[in-house]
Simulated scan of single mutants.
Amino acid sequence: MVKLRLRDNESVQDAVKRFRKLVEHAGVKKEMRRREYYEKPSDARRRTRLRAVRRARLSNMLNAK
């Protein structure tokens, strides 16, 4: 949960900017996008497996040079 307290003499624009940074840092937007639609557990496992394969392939390419 993100909490924001207005500082003394802080403008609304500065507070909104700080709030956006806090929300992004906390991962709220990422979590909202992930939960927007139901994802079957098999699809989630497939996505994580493909991400790991891509990461391994990239590290192999970087280590080969």
Rank of each mutant, 00 (worst) to 15 (best):
M1V: 14
M1G: 15
M1H: 14
K3A: 12
K3V: 13
L4D: 06
L4F: 07
L4P: 03
R5M: 13
L6G: 15
D8V: 08
D8L: 08
N9Q: 11
E10W: 06
E10T: 05
E10L: 03
S11Q: 13
V12M: 13
V12R: 15
Q13D: 09
D14V: 05
D14N: 14
A15G: 09
R18T: 01
R18A: 01
R18L: 00
F19P: 01
F19T: 15
K21S: 14
L22Q: 15
H25V: 07
H25T: 14
H25Y: 10
A26C: 04
A26I: 01
A26L: 00
A26Q: 13
A26M: 02
G27P: 04
G27E: 04
V28E: 12
V28F: 08
V28S: 11
V28T: 13
V28I: 13
K29S: 12
K29T: 13
K30P: 03
K30D: 13
K30R: 15
K30S: 09
E31G: 07
E31I: 08
E31N: 10
M32G: 02
R33I: 07
R34A: 14
R34L: 06
R34V: 04
R34N: 07
R35M: 10
E36S: 10
E36Q: 15
Y38A: 05
Y38M: 02
E39D: 05
E39V: 03
E39M: 03
K40I: 00
P41Y: 00
P41R: 04
P41Q: 03
S42I: 04
D43H: 08
A44G: 00
A44F: 00
A44K: 08
R45I: 06
R45H: 09
R45S: 12
R45Y: 06
R46M: 01
R46V: 00
R46D: 00
R46I: 01
R47V: 01
R47A: 10
T48K: 12
T48D: 14
T48W: 04
T48A: 12
R49I: 02
L50W: 06
L50T: 11
L50Q: 15
R51Q: 11
R51C: 03
A52D: 05
A52F: 02
A52E: 06
V53T: 08
V53A: 06
R54P: 06
R54V: 00
R55E: 07
R55D: 05
R57W: 11
S59F: 03
N60D: 09
M61I: 04
M61D: 10
M61A: 11
L62G: 04
L62W: 07
N63W: 08
N63V: 09
N63M: 07
A64M: 12
A64H: 11
K65R: 14
